[in-house]
Design a protein around this nucleic acid. Structure first.
Lengths: 111, 111
DNA sequence: TTCTTTAATCGTATATTTGCGATATAAGAT
DNA sequence: ATCTTATATCGCAAATATACGATTAAAGAA
């Protein structure tokens, strides 16, 4: 394919897509669930909860962090991760704006 | 990696992930936007609106349809696609349930 | 029937993701 | 200083996704 054309779309489209992409793997959904359930920051406990190797979990955490869905601070030999609620609010409102609001005026389905 | 471990997660986690995956590309976000804006079913008009080849658009449409985000009916030599609002409602409620509801009891951030 | 139009599918090249083991890093414990 | 524990990163193999041109299919128009 030579070139990815993602940059040919608007920033909002890319932002929404990136957020969705970060959630596009069940392991990452599961990680977010754990982080959301426990208010306290979690680190390697996730490794015990999920059926994946430590390095793989670490990689998923990195992706979530890069995408801005979670925050993470290094705390000695262990790391601490938390849900970035602000990012979810933003996604939720953008998402709703894009689809729910439009739905209001277009309720009738056609096919 | 040999094996994908997606099946090791719950059905809900997989469903959410699949929905998110369908939206994880700006082209598909853009397609959904077009379908949401025009109440009427769109087909090849999308090809004129997006900077991608016809075959690529068709592939994205297929993915959206397979994931259940849109419906499509063949209408002679042209096809008709529409947003599947029900699927979005379901996603929205699952998503909110997973994160917004939990947020209520865990407002304080930790890191 | 043959031509045209519209959209799906095939084949293929390249990019990205997923996953793991091995290794590196960094701080506390001994 | 050495050992231990917890994470991150590297390197690699396999799976998927992205994109396009070429081809196919299917229905209306000529």
């Amino acid at each position: 394919m030579a070139i990815h054309k993602k940059s040919a779309f608007t920033q909002k489209e890319q932002d929404l897509a990136n957020f969705a992409k970060a959630m596009s793997h069940p392991a990452r959904i599961a990680i977010l669930k754990v982080l959301a359930q426990r208010n306290e920051c979690i680190c390697g406990e996730i490794v015990d909860l999920l059926p994946l190797a430590q390095s793989t979990i670490s990689q998923h955490l990195k992706e979530l962090k890069t995408a801005g869905l979670i925050t993470g601070t290094i705390d000695g030999p262990r790391s601490c991760y938390c849900i970035n609620w602000k990012a979810f609010e933003k996604f939720n409102s953008e998402f709703s704006f894009l689809f729910n609001k439009l739905k209001m005026s277009n309720e009738k389905a056609c096919c």
